[in-house]
Simulated scan of single mutants.
Amino acid sequence: MAENPSVSGVSGRYATALFELARDERSIDSVKADLDKFEAMLADSADLKRLVRSPVFSSEAQAKALSAVLDKAGISGISANFLKVLTANRRLFAVDQVIRAFGALVAKFKGEAIAEVTVAEQLSDKNLDALKVALKSVTGKDVSLNVNVDPSIIGGLVVKLGSRMVDSSLRTKLNSIKHAMKEAG
């Protein structure tokens, strides 16, 4: 795993262990779906973020609250057990890095590429599909998208695919114009 820098450190070790278990149990897709669901819940809930990230909660309190969240979301089996292990080991704060690393392992296993995409506002499914098609034509592989919303880029998008990066954000264009004006002045 050392050749894949996105799968290193503590989060990489947890992700690798989960990936190997899911592969052995032939449940990679269901575990990925569960983790994607949990990641979406995390993005949508300030309370869940606080539960996951705050060191003030004991592992018992985190475990009890997490169990209720997982039951309500219908997340069970390997995925639920894994999230409970993270909690028991006081590593729940790193869950988003673990989920990303797991996604990278799944993509590599399936021969897919992962693109980190930063946009000013959430893209529609139609635009996401168009972006996937465009990236597939460039890479020749199916492309999974990790989309981050960052209003500070104003408009456009930034796409990072492996070591290649395309920055068509309005912020970058404005900065280059500002720089050119300083040079000319």
Rank of each mutant, 00 (worst) to 15 (best):
S11C: 11
N127L: 13
H179G: 09
G140K: 10
P55T: 12
S54F: 04
K72T: 08
D129G: 14
N127R: 15
E116P: 00
G103Q: 03
S169N: 07
D129A: 15
K136P: 08
R100L: 12
Y14N: 07
S11N: 14
K136I: 06
A40L: 12
L170P: 09
S54N: 14
E25N: 11
M41Y: 06
S54W: 03
L105E: 04
G103S: 13
G155L: 06
S176D: 15
L48E: 09
F82I: 05
K72S: 09
A107V: 02
K37P: 00
A68S: 11
V98A: 04
F57H: 12
D142H: 13
S168N: 14
D36T: 13
Q97Y: 12
V95E: 11
T87S: 08
S67D: 09
D29L: 02
R26M: 02
N81H: 05
S58P: 02
D96A: 13
L35Y: 03
R100M: 07
A68E: 14
A130L: 13
G156E: 05
S169P: 05
I114G: 01
P55R: 09
F38Y: 12
R164E: 14
K136S: 14
G12I: 04
E60T: 05
A22K: 07
A65S: 14
F19K: 02
F38V: 02
L21N: 00
I153F: 04
S8V: 12
M165D: 00
L70Y: 01
L18K: 10
Q122L: 04
S176N: 14
S169I: 07
S79L: 03
V106N: 02
I28R: 03
V149T: 08
D96T: 15
K37V: 00
K84I: 06
L86T: 13
T139M: 09
F57M: 05
E3Q: 11
I153A: 04
Q122D: 07
L18D: 10
L18W: 09
L105M: 08
S30T: 15
F102V: 08
S168G: 15
L145C: 05
V158M: 09
S169W: 07
R91S: 12
A43F: 05
D34K: 01
V95H: 09
S176P: 01
D29F: 01
F38T: 03
D24W: 01
V159H: 06
S30P: 00
I99W: 07
L128N: 11
L157M: 15
A46C: 00
T118W: 01
K108G: 13
V98F: 08
L66P: 05
A63L: 10
S27K: 08
A17G: 12
I153L: 04
E112L: 00
S76W: 03
A46R: 13
N127H: 14
F93Q: 14
E183C: 01
K84V: 02
F82W: 03
I75D: 01
Q97G: 11
M181I: 15
V147R: 04
